[in-house]
Design a protein around this nucleic acid. Structure first.
Ligand SMILES: [Mn+2]
Ligand SMILES: [Mn+2]
Ligand SMILES: [Zn+2]
Ligand SMILES: [Zn+2]
Lengths: 166, 166
DNA sequence: ATAGTGAATTGGACTTTGTCCATGTCGTGG
DNA sequence: CCACGACATGGACAAAGTCCAATTCACTAT
C-alpha cells in the first residue's frame, strides 16, 4: 500500500499529509478516476470522498457534512450537496431513499445489492437476493417502459430492536 | 349502486349531496369500515377519502390537499396530514417514497403490488411481478432480522418520455 | 515561479415537505 | 337538544434541499 502524500493550502489554513495520514487504496482509486474525468481535486472533495470511504455506510447529506467538517471545519453544506450530486451523476455513489426522509448516500456503487432496513431504528444492511429481480417483471407488466433498474427494500425488525421490544 | 345522500354543515357553509353527487361503492365501503372502527365522520375526512378514491392514484399530501380544497375550501393542511396518517396506520392507504421527495399516498392497499416509475417525468404505474419477492432473500442474508415486507421499485423511461427524447 | 481564467466554494436566502400545539369547533351518544 | 371529548385549524417551527452572487482557488500556460 503506497501512502499518498499531499499538501493542501487555503488562505487561512495549511493541511498536510500528516493531518490526514494516507488515503486507502479504494479512495485513491476513486480520486484518480475522478481526476481523469476532469475533476479539480479540492480539499473539500477529498474530504467528502474520505468520509464516504468504506463500503458499508449509508449516510445522509448532513451526516456527511458533519463528518467532513471534523476534517475541514470550513466546508459548507452547499459544497457537500454539490459534491454528492456529482458523485451520483458519475455513478460513483448511489442515492437511496428508504424512509421518505433524508436521502442516503451509498458508496458501494460497484457491487449490485439491495437493502434491508429496520423499521424501528432505521439501521440499513446491504443484502444480496438470489436471481435477477428485473426478471420477475413480465413484459406484459412493463407498459412500454424501458426498465433499467430495480430497487428492492426489505423491511423488518433488527435483532437489537427485537430484543428491546421483548 | 346505492347513492348515499348526506348533508354537511359547518359554521360558514352548507354542503349537500348535490354538491358531491354520490359516493362510489368503494368509498362508501371505506367510510363504513372506518365508522365501525370508531371514526367520527367529518366533512374533512369524507373529502380526503373521496380524493383518494379510485385505485390508480399516487398523490402527494399537497396534491391531496389541493383536490380536497376544491370540494371543501377551508380544509387545512394539518388535517390532510392527520387523516392520511390515520389511514396509513389503519392499513387503508399505503405510503410510498419513490423519489426521495414528497411521500405519496396509495389507496390500493388491499392488492399487493409494486411500482414502475419513470425517471424523467415521475409517472408511477402499479405492476405485479411474478413470484414472492421475499423468497429471493435467503436466510443467510437476513442477519437475524424478522423480515415482514418488501418494496420493489422498477425504474426506467415511460413511452411518452422515450418519444420526446427521440 | 507566476499569472490568468474559469471552475469550485461559500453563506445565506429561499422553497418544499412535514410536525406540533393551543385554541376553537363539531359529531355523537345520551 | 346538551355535554364532552375527539377533531380541525392556522401558524409557528423544523428538516431537507436548492439557488445565487460574490469570492477563492486549482490548474494550465507562460
Ligand atoms: Mn448499500
Ligand atoms: Mn400503487
Ligand atoms: Zn432496529
Ligand atoms: Zn416519463
Amino acid at each position: 500500500m503506497d501512502k499518498v502524500q499531499f499538501t493542501i493550502m487555503t488562505n487561512s489554513r495549511h493541511i498536510t499529509g500528516s493531518d490526514i495520514p494516507w488515503y486507502p487504496d479504494g479512495m485513491s482509486d476513486l480520486l484518480e478516476r475522478l481526476r481523469t474525468r476532469g475533476w479539480r481535486l479540492t480539499a473539500q472533495r477529498r474530504v467528502v470522498a474520505e468520509v464516504l470511504d468504506g463500503d458499508h455506510v449509508h449516510l445522509t447529506a448532513d451526516e456527511v457534512h458533519a463528518r467532513a467538517a471534523r476534517l475541514l471545519p470550513e466546508i459548507s453544506r452547499a459544497t457537500v450537496y454539490n459534491t454528492l450530486g456529482e458523485l451520483v451523476t458519475l455513478g460513483e455513489v448511489l442515492e437511496v431513499s428508504t424512509d421518505g426522509r433524508a436521502r442516503r448516500y451509498d458508496p458501494n456503487a460497484h457491487h449490485a445489492h439491495q437493502h434491508l432496513v429496520c423499521s424501528h431504528c432505521g439501521t440499513i444492511r446491504d443484502v444480496h437476493p438470489v436471481g435477477d429481480p428485473l426478471a420477475a417483471l413480465p413484459a406484459g407488466e412493463r407498459f412500454g417502459f424501458t426498465v433499467s433498474d430495480v430497487e428492492v427494500t426489505y423491511r423488518g425488525t433488527c435483532p437489537d430492536c427485537s430484543a428491546t421490544a421483548a
